[in-house]
Simulated assay, not measured.
Amino acid sequence: MEGALMIAEFQALILAAVIEGPVAYLLIRWTGWSCRGAVHAGLAAIVATGVTHPQVWEGVLWAYRHYPVWPSALVAEALVVLVEAALMSWMIGLAPRQALALSLLTNTASFLAGLVVLR
């Protein structure tokens, strides 16, 4: 079971990175927000995902054993949005409000994609 969980975690990480990087790139291109640029934003989203994903994965696995799934998932996603917003704001020089919006949109996209994959 341990091996299967590691594979699932890796697949989820890759899926999140493949979605969040391009979404961040496109959002910065579309909005024209002042920062280090769309390419940097895409890369920052991927790095932020790589930083938060392992901790969230472990935290959610624990939470699912003790609490209902949906509240656990939503609390975890809220924490991820906040942490990744702070990281992206710092990495690409984006205003905190804009970084929060960027993080919310990128994470919403990957969360929804994850739900589709799970179906």
Results as ranks from 00 to 15, higher is better:
1 M>K: 15
1 M>Y: 14
1 M>P: 11
2 E>Q: 12
5 L>S: 09
7 I>N: 08
9 E>R: 05
9 E>Q: 12
9 E>F: 12
11 Q>M: 12
13 L>E: 08
14 I>P: 05
17 A>G: 09
18 V>I: 06
19 I>V: 15
22 P>V: 01
23 V>L: 09
24 A>M: 07
25 Y>P: 02
26 L>V: 12
27 L>M: 06
27 L>G: 01
28 I>F: 04
30 W>T: 15
31 T>H: 15
32 G>C: 10
33 W>H: 06
35 C>I: 01
36 R>E: 14
38 A>H: 11
38 A>W: 11
39 V>Y: 14
39 V>A: 13
40 H>S: 12
40 H>T: 14
42 G>F: 03
42 G>Y: 06
45 A>Y: 07
45 A>I: 00
46 I>T: 09
46 I>P: 13
47 V>G: 02
49 T>R: 02
49 T>E: 08
52 T>I: 10
54 P>C: 04
55 Q>A: 15
56 V>G: 08
57 W>F: 13
58 E>W: 13
58 E>R: 09
59 G>T: 02
61 L>V: 02
62 W>D: 13
62 W>C: 02
63 A>E: 12
63 A>Q: 00
63 A>N: 04
65 R>I: 07
65 R>P: 11
66 H>D: 12
66 H>K: 10
67 Y>C: 09
67 Y>K: 04
68 P>S: 10
73 A>M: 10
73 A>K: 03
73 A>E: 15
73 A>N: 10
76 A>W: 03
79 L>Q: 00
80 V>W: 03
81 V>R: 01
81 V>S: 12
82 L>T: 07
83 V>N: 08
83 V>F: 11
84 E>N: 10
84 E>Q: 15
84 E>D: 07
85 A>G: 04
87 L>F: 12
88 M>F: 05
89 S>H: 04
89 S>P: 10
89 S>Y: 07
91 M>P: 05
91 M>W: 14
92 I>A: 05
93 G>V: 06
94 L>V: 07
97 R>E: 08
97 R>W: 14
101 A>T: 08
103 S>P: 15
104 L>W: 00
105 L>N: 01
106 T>N: 12
108 T>L: 15
109 A>H: 00
112 L>S: 06
112 L>P: 05
115 L>M: 09
115 L>N: 13
116 V>R: 14
116 V>P: 13
117 V>N: 09
117 V>S: 05
118 L>P: 09
